[in-house]
Simulated scan of single mutants.
Amino acid sequence: MAVDKSKQPGSDPKRTSQSTSRPDVSETDVMPTEHAEVLDERDGLVEELKETADKLDRDGATRGDLKILSRAMRELRYAFKVFTPYRRRRKVTVFGSARTPEDTPLYEHVVEFGQKMGGLGWMVLTGAGPGVMEAANVGAGRGMSMGVNILLPFEQEANQVLRNDDKLVHLKYFFTRKLLFVKEVHAAALFPGGFGTLDEAFEVLTLVQTGKRDLMPLVLIDEPGGSYWKNWKKFIEEELLNTGMISPEDMDLFKVTDDIDEACGEILSFYCVYNSMRYVKGKLVLRLHLEPSDELVERLNVEFADIVERGRIEKVGTHPLEADDAHLADLPRLQFRFNRKYIGRLRQMVDVLNEELGACAPELTV
């Protein structure tokens, strides 16, 4: 099938909120209580960066170390500038092989995924290269695509969808690129690929499983009738799950499918009721699109008592310490003291909330 690589979805993108959660905040951290204090804290962080630079000078840091730090900071500064206007837009990262030819069923499969997600108002972030990355951008169209291109001796030019686009960032380091792939998005879709794809799959899963990245849906998509991710899942079950190296609930952190509609549905349904999460004064706050009934909250306290360190799951209002998330102030909330070892069980609780509070309204699906 011939594909128009310059096409864009016809519908206008919808805007939604993005979590600005800070999972590393403890009760002893100083957090803002109003917008003026948010600015004060921001100024303090800028001073910390300057102080760190001064310490490097005093430490006699080597030229090589300074070059790495300088380049990494410049890359991230520019990338954050590019991503800032799109922070409240839902985005999905797409991973997969750069070697996938255009005339293959896998390429067309990825194009379909990009088309559907872009048409639903989701922006598609890729590594801006050829193969699967290009196919995802082709499907989403230039207007709904973003890219973080890695500069390699043998593969430097961005694909023709993103080439010279204002939403394209060029990076030297894999670690800065990988940070953006996970930090700036709300879901990840992985198609078959090589070492890099498997690396990203395990890294994203590890970050979510350990709570270093907020919960988000992860879909691993085979080509129709394919077995790449099915065989990967079999390995996970036989070598990790059955040997006790991971917990049974960790298997709920991802979904394997070869159906594009099912993959898109997995992403959309995750945000049906759940919006985002944030830690406030050592307690986990779940921001929701719909308020759960008292009966449902009681059920959660019974079924998920194991993930509550002490106290109960309860409905709460917006805390003053969430002042920098003012756009989420009107959302209903659940709060409890979460045992952070049980991320898989937390995902199961989010699934219960999404299932029990009914079908998504269209405006809540992106």
Rank of each mutant, 00 (worst) to 15 (best):
R142D: 04
L106I: 04
A53P: 06
L171A: 12
S19V: 10
Q8F: 05
G147S: 13
V138H: 05
T20P: 01
K283T: 02
F174V: 01
W122S: 05
K167L: 01
F254D: 00
G60V: 09
E223M: 10
Y271N: 11
I246L: 06
R88M: 10
N301V: 03
E303S: 13
V46L: 15
G64A: 12
R74S: 11
L190N: 00
E75N: 02
F95N: 07
L220D: 00
D59S: 12
Y342I: 08
T176C: 06
Y342Q: 09
V256S: 04
D222S: 01
Y279A: 00
R74I: 03
M31T: 15
I260E: 09
Y279F: 15
L171R: 00
Y342V: 03
E75L: 02
E314Q: 15
D65L: 10
D199L: 00
A359W: 03
Y279T: 01
D103S: 15
D40L: 11
P9E: 08
L346Y: 12
L268D: 06
M349P: 10
K230E: 10
R278A: 06
A326Q: 08
A135E: 08
V38P: 01
V111W: 04
A201C: 09
L357D: 02
V308F: 05
L162I: 14
L296K: 00
G194V: 02
L66H: 07
V219A: 13
G344W: 07
S6P: 02
E34F: 04
T62Y: 01
R58N: 09
R337V: 00
R340A: 09
P217T: 06
M245A: 14
D351W: 02
M133S: 01
Q160W: 13
L288G: 10
G147D: 05
N339C: 07
L331D: 05
S17R: 15
P224D: 10
V316E: 01
E239L: 04
